[in-house]
Write a protein that binds this DNA or RNA. Structure first.
Lengths: 238, 238
DNA sequence: CATGGTCCGTGACGGTGATCACAATGGAAA
DNA sequence: TTTCCATTGTGATCACCGTCACGGACCATG
């Protein structure tokens, strides 16, 4: 099998390395096999749109490799990024289940691969396998929690520095070392960070300067070092 | 049956006037009967807390009568109201399904009544009635959509006037007359409106003045008259 | 090496809305 | 009625951050 964009293609969900941890894992052999049959897989270049806000839902995408950003925009062009999805995540589930338009746009941030499950097949599958429907409900309520985190950040954290500190902390917890410090590979542009915390590119730039001066963070090339979690938590407070 | 707080108590879901339109409606006779058995009902005064943000979920509440406000707060006391729930709404569903703490506080805004369904009973019920689980998933994804509306309002609409116009429009559509105008009974304080659109009491006050001057709205006692939807939509834009 | 494009740093400026303060209003209860 | 408390109107002030502008850094490509 060819490997465009420098990727190895995974063609069988049953042996996918990420399947253990996520939604469609530990299914009965029968259900797993059926799921494997109704999915199709594809490889995407950087910048590819899996789906666009407002489109009628065609189906869900299971991200196998690569990162994708989920965003929503206003007519005037202002954009907020609501989530950076990683491999194993299911994209478009809400739209498919409720049969409403996709509420976000999903764009690949790097070359990757995703499985596609058409809407009708998925819904039929869920009807036939009731135990999975409850799993889906659980996943949806997890998504809901994430959305509420976002609401709290946007609505309760007033200042950009507070939101920036919050973002740094969320990165930091994912990669925490034994000594409390953490290193993060910085793949986002200032512009993208601004779209996450709801401010402007310039403000993010100034925040980096300010936080560097206050010893809250450190930059080694494109690696971000966070030492002082406590000080960050103090800024966040909420 | 006694009627505290001036309310008539509804003691049977099968004959509840609001059941037709909502989640647990049109169930099979068997399922409906079982649901009626596992629920208990209670009457609440104004200001009663059905549950509080951060508590472990005990169960869901089906609001039968009265309004409730859902809100989330930061430690410093800043509060945002995310939804005004009305009769028929299910409260606490996400927390119960995902077994995470309630993500909001639910407070009665006026005397009312709610049915309570304990967590364990509900989950068992959903397992036994797989067709209802998919319904629940649909409800959850509707909630998710509402949350995303909130995210868009908070993140994309920058100015208070934009958010205020958005709120007025949402009220207006619920009560639209044939001639396009609409009348809304204003039950919220400026403070509460401020907590909905994420600003301060004073700003809301000034917004009312400004919009009155611009002929966008009109106040007759506690009744709000909205005539000029188009002008409001122009302010919203997004 | 030159060129073009994206990304980043930083100064200057101005508008906006939060904050504080206080008066006015209005409704409920004694 | 009088009192009391919650709510509302509005002025003055000012920090903050969005916007504009420009220059420099970095990187790919020809």
């Amino acid at each position: 099998m060819r490997a465009p964009y420098g990727l190895n293609i995974l063609d069988n969900c049953l042996s996918c390395p990420v399947r253990e941890e996520h939604l469609f894992c530990n299914l009965s052999v029968h259900a797993g096999q059926r799921l494997n049959d109704i999915k199709s897989t594809a490889v995407y270049p950087k910048g590819a749109m899996l789906f666009i806000e407002g489109q009628q839902p065609r189906g869900v995408f299971v991200l196998c490799a690569g990162k994708a950003k989920l965003s929503t925009s206003s007519r005037e062009g202002k954009t907020i990024i609501t989530k950076i999805s990683e491999s194993g995540d299911i994209l478009g589930l809400n739209a498919v289940v409720s049969n409403r338009p996709y509420e976000v746009t999903a764009e690949m941030m790097e070359p990757g691969q995703a499985n596609f499950i058409p809407r009708d097949s998925l819904l039929q599958f869920l009807k036939d396998h009731g135990e999975v429907a409850l799993r889906v409900a659980e996943q949806l309520s997890r998504n809901y929690y994430t959305a509420y985190e976002e609401i709290r950040t946007l609505g309760l954290s007033t200042s950009p520095s507070e939101k920036f500190a919050k973002l740094l902390l969320s990165w930091s917890t994912k990669t925490q070392q034994t000594d409390g410090s953490s290193q993060v590979k910085l793949t986002l542009t200032h512009e993208e960070i601004a779209e996450i915390i709801g401010t402007t590119r310039e403000t993010v730039s100034r925040l980096f300067s300010e936080f560097k001066k206050k010893q809250l963070l450190q930059l080694k090339g494109s690696t971000l070092v966070i030492r002082n979690r406590l000080a960050l938590e103090k800024i966040v407070q909420s």
